[in-house]
Design a protein around this nucleic acid. Structure first.
Length: 515
DNA sequence: AAGTCGCGCAACCGCGTACAC
DNA sequence: AGTGTACGCGGTTGCGCGACT
C-alpha cells in the first residue's frame, strides 16, 4: 500500500491498513482500500464539483478513481465536504451529543443532523470513547442535568401532544397503520420551513417535537447533503413506536442513585424512562462498567434501549425444538462479560427474606424487587393463576437487569428460560422477548415465530383482543410497559406513584386498563 | 531508550431500505 | 411481483500516536 496521508488528518495514516492495494494493482482495475491520498481526495473533490453528490459508483467510471462508490461517499461525507467542522467537539457540542443520545440512542446519523458540520462517524467515535472513559472512571453515562433537560423537553413536547390528543384526533392504531403524520409534526415542520432544505417528513427527529429555543437546533448540511435520506424501518419504529406506549413514571436518580419519581406525562410519546435509569450506572443493558462487550464496542445487542430499535436476532439463537431448554444456549456458562460484571459489582446481601431490597439502587431494580416479591407472595398464597399470568410471570422472571446476583436470582436462574445470569443475558444472549434492548419489536417477533413458546409474554385478553396492534409495540423491557401489565399491582413502596400512574393509565386506556 | 498499552480515528463491512426497471 | 442497484446507517476493525513503565 502506497497511500500517503490525506489532507484531513496528516498525523496518521502513514501506512495503509488492511488489504489495501498498490497503485499498480489499482491501475489494473482493482479497487483501492485503506487511507485516502491527497491526490485521490483532489480527484473526488473535482468530481463532486463537476457532477454533484450522488451516483457514487460512477465516480470510478468518470474520474478513474480506484475507489468503490461506497468509499467515495464516505470520504466525501466524512472528510471532504466543505461544510465540515474539524477539530475537537466544543463543550456545547458534547452536551448536545449526550442529550441527543439520551433521546435517540445510537442514531448517529440523526444526531449528526442536529450537529452542524459534524458527521455521524465523528459522533459515534466520540460517544464510544466517551462511554469508555466514563465507565472507566465509574461515572454515569448520562449526567443528571442532561437527563433533566431531556425530560423537560419531552414534557413540553408531550404537553402539546396531549392537547392534541384531547382534541380527539389521535388514534394509535390507525395512525400506525396508515402512517398518518400527527398534526403536531406538521406544526413543527412549519417551524423549520425557513430552512434551505425541507427534511423528509418521516425523517424529522423526535426532538423536533420540543419547543425548545435551542438555536443549534436546525437541519444542517448533513440533512441538506442527503436530501434523499431514506427512512429505515428502525426510523419508522422510532417515529411511531411510542404511540403504543402509555404513561411513564419516570425514575430520577441523582449521582448517588437516590430515587425520586416523577410523573412525566400521560402522553404515549414519552421518550424513554430508561434513559434516566442509565444515569444511575446501575442499568447495565448498555454497557457494563468493565464490560468487555462495552469496551469492545459490541453494542448490537445492547443499547439503544429507547427509540433506536433494530430488529436483530441475538447472537446466540436458540432452537425452538430444544425441549425444556428454554432457549438456553448450548453453553450454560456465564459469559466473560457477566463474570467481569460480577467482579465489578459484588453481590449485595443475599438474605432470602429480603433478597433484593432496592435500598440503594434505582427504580428499575426496585420495580423488579417489588414484582418478584409480589410473585413470591402470590405463589405463596396459591392464588389462582391464569395461563396468562403464569407466562407473564415466567417471562418476567427473566427481567433481572441488575447483575448483582442474589440467592433469589440464583434460584430463579435455575428455572430461568435462559439459565444464565442476567448480566450475560443482557450482554450476550439478549432474548428477543424480554431482555432485548433493541426495542418494542420484540414481542411481535416472538409471537410471529412461535406463539407457543413459553417465554413469550402473553397479554391479558382485553389487550389482546382490542389493542393487539398497539400492544405488539409494547416493550416489556420498559418499566412503563411492565406497569401496564399490572406486574407491580401490589407494590407498597411505590404505591403512591403507581396510583398517580394508574390514574393516568385510566385516563388513557379507560376500560382497557385493568389496574 | 525501548517496549507496551490504550486511545482516537478513519475506513471497512454487512445489512436494510428505496427506487428503477 | 421480482430483481438489481444505489444509498445510507450502524457496528467493527486496524493503525498510528502518545502516555506510561
Amino acid at each position: 500500500m502506497s497511500s500517503m496521508p490525506s489532507g484531513g488528518d496528516s498525523r496518521k495514516m502513514s501506512k495503509g491498513r488492511r488489504s489495501s492495494l498498490s497503485v499498480e494493482e489499482a491501475s489494473e482495475g482493482l479497487l483501492m482500500k485503506g487511507p485516502w491520498t491527497a491526490a485521490e481526495d483532489a480527484i473526488l473533490e473535482e468530481y463532486v464539483r463537476k457532477h454533484g453528490e450522488g451516483n457514487w459508483n460512477a465516480v470510478q467510471k468518470h474520474s478513474g478513481l480506484a475507489r468503490c462508490g461506497k468509499s467515495c461517499r464516505l470520504r466525501w461525507a466524512n472528510h471532504l465536504r466543505p461544510d465540515l467542522r474539524k477539530g475537537a467537539f466544543s463543550a456545547e457540542e458534547e452536551d448536545r451529543i449526550i442529550e441527543l443520545h439520551a433521546r435517540m440512542g445510537n442514531k448517529w446519523a440523526r444526531m449528526a443532523a442536529e450537529l452542524p458540520g459534524r458527521t455521524d462517524n465523528e459522533i459515534k467515535n466520540y460517544w464510544n470513547t466517551r462511554i469508555k472513559r466514563r465507565l472507566r472512571s465509574g461515572l454515569p453515562i448520562y449526567p443528571a442535568d442532561i437527563c433533566l433537560r431531556v425530560l423537560n423537553n419531552n414534557q413540553e413536547s408531550l404537553d402539546v401532544g396531549t392537547l392534541k390528543n384531547e382534541s380527539g384526533q389521535h388514534d394509535d392504531a390507525s395512525q400506525t397503520d396508515n402512517f398518518d403524520i400527527p398534526e403536531l409534526e406538521f406544526q413543527n415542520y412549519e417551524i423549520h420551513r425557513g430552512l434551505p432544505y425541507a427534511p423528509a417528513i418521516f425523517d424529522i427527529p423526535e426532538n423536533l417535537f420540543q419547543q425548545s429555543s435551542d438555536s443549534s437546533h436546525s437541519y444542517n448540511a448533513m440533512s441538506s447533503t442527503h436530501p434523499r435520506k431514506r427512512l429505515r424501518e428502525s426510523d419508522e419504529l422510532y417515529n411511531n413506536s411510542f404511540d403504543g406506549y402509555i404513561s411513564s413514571t419516570v425514575p430520577l436518580f441523582d449521582q448517588y442513585g437516590n430515587y425520586t419519581s416523577k410523573i412525566v406525562s400521560d402522553h404515549p410519546r414519552f421518550s424513554s424512562p430508561y434513559d434516566l435509569l442509565l444515569d444511575t450506572g446501575q442499568f447495565h443493558g448498555y454497557n457494563f462498567p468493565g464490560s468487555h462487550a462495552a469496551l469492545n464496542g459490541n453494542t448490537s445487542s445492547s443499547m439503544p434501549i429507547t427509540e433506536a430499535m433494530k430488529l436483530e436476532l441475538p447472537s446466540l439463537q436458540y432452537l425452538e425444538d430444544q425441549q425444556g431448554s428454554w432457549g438456553m444456549p448450548a453453553s450454560p456458562l456465564p459469559s466473560l462479560e457477566s463474570v467481569d460484571t460480577f467482579i465489578q459489582s459484588p453481590p449485595t446481601d443475599p438474605s432470602w427474606t429480603d433478597p433484593l431490597s432496592p435500598r440503594s439502587s434505582g427504580l428499575l431494580e426496585a420495580i423488579i424487587w417489588e414484582s418478584k416479591k409480589n410473585l413470591r407472595d402470590s405463589n405463596n398464597n396459591s392464588l389462582t393463576q391464569t395461563p396468562e399470568n403464569c407466562v407473564s410471570n415466567e417471562a418476567f422472571k427473566n427481567l433481572t437487569l441488575n447483575p448483582r446476583m442474589t440467592e433469589c436470582d440464583e434460584q430463579w436462574e435455575l428455572n430461568s428460560p435462559l439459565g444464565q445470569s442476567a448480566a450475560s443475558v443482557l450482554t450476550d444472549y439478549t432474548p428477543i422477548n424480554l431482555c432485548s434492548m433493541d426495542g418494542p419489536q420484540s414481542i411481535e417477533t416472538t409471537q410471529n415465530h412461535d406463539t407457543n413458546h413459553r417465554s413469550v409474554p402473553q397479554f391479558p385478553p382485553a389487550y389482546s383482543s382490542r389493542n393487539n396492534k398497539r400492544l405488539r409495540k409494547i416493550d416489556l423491557t420498559r418499566p412503563d410497559a411492565l406497569f401496564e401489565f399490572g406486574l407491580f399491582e401490589n407494590s407498597t413502596e411505590y404505591s403512591k406513584d403507581q396510583n398517580v400512574l394508574r390514574n393516568a393509565l385510566d385516563a388513557l386506556l379507560g376500560d382497557d386498563f385493568q389496574g
